[in-house]
């Protein structure tokens, strides 16, 4: 497991050390509601009841303080303002919040932010290269793999997880791979075509 060497429950000292050797340059450029510049982190005690969280989102390292009950999607949407990730059921029962955690699809609404400690998160925004769409995203446009679009980021992230693991899925494997994402509009036939198209293009 990637986080094995690095105990997830870092002491403040360890945390700050990790920060100052690694990613100090990046932190200033991130726009975080609660992510403090490094000097302040050293001095400021964390807000009461908060714990430090260090994770990578779409390739960028972030450090912030969270309450332990904070879910990953709350960090993504509220703190990092990555609103492409949606919340629809908030119980791991629909897939709208799907993101990749170390390359695997998970429900970001149903995982504690602290469980992403030291891990790498990819959201729908992370698939783009600047303004350039990822081939999967293009495939969803080409094949009309959506209607209202609210579940679409989740569908696309599940497609990404599937194709990372299995670049040439069969129809059955596509159905399995996307089965954890509801589409209330019922765009499934076109979603299936979109995944097939994405697999072909990749």
């Amino acid at each position: 497991m990637p986080n094995k060497k690095k105990p997830s429950s870092l002491s403040r000292r360890q945390f700050i050390k990790g920060v100052s050797t690694g990613v100090a340059g990046t932190i200033a450029t991130t726009k975080l509601a609660r992510a403090l510049p490094i000097e302040k982190l050293e001095k400021a005690a964390p807000p009461e009841g908060h714990l430090p969280l260090e994770l990578k989102v779409n390739g960028k390292p972030y450090q912030l303080y969270v309450e332990p009950q904070t879910t990953l999607v709350e960090v993504l949407r509220n703190e990092l303002q990555l609103t492409g990730t949606k919340v629809s059921c908030n119980h791991g029962e629909c897939g709208a919040c799907t993101v990749l955690l170390d390359g695997k699809a998970v429900y970001s609404c149903h995982i504690l932010a602290l469980d992403a400690q030291g891990k790498s998160v990819t959201t729908i925004e992370g698939l783009l290269n600047g303004e350039e769409l990822h081939p999967i995203q293009k495939a969803f446009i080409k094949k009309d793999g959506y209607q209202c679009g609210f579940c679409t980021p989740g569908q696309i992230m599940s497609t990404q997880a599937l194709l990372l693991k299995n670049p040439n899925p069969t129809k059955e494997e596509i159905l399995d791979g996307l089965s954890g994402n509801l589409c209330r509009c019922g765009a499934y036939p076109k979603i299936i075509e979109s995944v097939e198209e994405a697999a072909k293009v990749k």
């Binding site: 791991g92 897939g95 799907t98 955690l101 695997k104 699809a105 998970v106 429900y107 149903h110 995982i111 599940s158 997880a161 399995d176 791979g177 089965s179 954890g180």
Partner: peptide, 9 residues
């Protein structure tokens, strides 16, 4: 069991 995402979790 459950769904792919839940099986990953």
């Amino acid at each position: 069991t459950a769904s792919p995402q839940l099986r990953n979790m």
